[in-house]
Computed example of a mutant assay.
Amino acid sequence: MKNRYLLSIFTILLLSACGGEKANNGEIAESDTLIYIPVEAGRAEQGSVSAYYSTTATLEAEEEAEVVAKTNGIITRLFVEEGDFVRVGTPLLQLDDTQYKLEVNRAEANLNRLQSDFDRNKEMFERNMVSAEVFDRVKYEYESQKATLDMAKLNVEYTTVRAPISGVVSERMVRTGNMVVPNQNVFRVTTMNPLKAILHLPEHELQKIKVGQKVMMDIDAIPNTTFEGSVERISPVVDRSTGTFRVVVLLRDQANRIKPGMFARVRVVYDVRDQTMVVPKLAIINDGGRNSVFVVNDSLVKRKNVTVGYTNGTKVEILNGLDIGDVVVTVGHNSLRDSTRVEIINIL
């Protein structure tokens, strides 16, 4: 009987000990199962942000000339080829000038003869030995022959076709031995620097755009490079059919990487704010027109409403709602609520 009583007490104590151990393990398990949501974050910091109007355009040459022959003749020599750089007045091709030089010689001989007649009649007219009518006729023949000689010399000069502008020979349209006639296209010369982009902007942007404003261009054919240009000219009138006005932008590239015909994505910068607060664009949550961010403090997040300003690439201007140095969540918003615990795995 006594043994049975002792066995019962031992069993109760054993069960109590096991129950207490389970309770303690439950407390430890509850502590170990706090959930930390992994997120990426960035900081509110001072920076520069700009406002711009975005559009697209095809680059064009600021100057381009169709070179034409001014006289007829057979091409005896080509001095340049496509891709060659030429300056104003550089010879491009030579026409056969044999006939024109002979005409110069004949015109000079006739002029010499008429010069003698003119000098003799002038002296006689001053002595009243010939009438004014005779003297005027001789003078007219003499002046006419001078013009004939000048024209003959000009035709000789025209047999050398020269570049009307400085630039690159972008197209050759003739070959040696071809016969050309006046006003026939023989070359195209194109300026490569600067190039221009013609923009057609909506009329509500007219008051924002000014001559000299900075323009940023990204060109598809030249990735990972942003080129800088400026507004050169602004049309003073709005096209009534489209509601747009014309803006000419000049783009300079000393390395000559950009070419006419390239497609460009253009940003006309009309305002710049320096030393303003910016956060990564990914941090902004837009919910029904209200903007907010999750701010991290001691591994806990709190959602704060913010007022945003300009958006510039990957950065957004914050006008109020944050302080410099605040850490904001950029990736992982969807799993967050106020007071959610987070673990920052990467901070920008």
Rank of each mutant, 00 (worst) to 15 (best):
L251C: 08
S241Q: 14
T242E: 05
M173A: 07
N291W: 08
Q275N: 15
E82K: 10
L15H: 08
R172I: 12
N183L: 11
F118E: 06
Q145H: 03
A57H: 01
G288C: 02
A29C: 07
F135V: 06
M192Y: 15
I219K: 09
M262N: 05
N346C: 08
L319F: 00
V237N: 14
A69V: 03
E27C: 08
I198M: 14
F263Q: 13
V249G: 00
E45I: 10
T160S: 08
D323I: 08
E108C: 05
K22G: 04
L78F: 01
N185M: 11
V279Y: 03
E81R: 14
V138A: 07
I165D: 01
V186R: 03
N24E: 13
T55N: 02
R113S: 15
L59A: 06
N346K: 15
G313A: 05
E205L: 14
L95S: 04
E60H: 10
S31W: 10
P236L: 06
T148N: 14
I35A: 11
A51E: 14
I284Y: 02
I165M: 01
V272G: 10
S54D: 13
S16Q: 11
N346I: 07
N312E: 15
V134R: 15
R120I: 14
E123Y: 11
D84N: 10
G332E: 06
F10V: 12
F245S: 03
Q213Y: 02
D253N: 02
T242L: 02
T340W: 00
V169E: 05
L322N: 04
V308E: 07
L95N: 05
N121W: 12
V249Y: 09
G309T: 01
R137V: 11
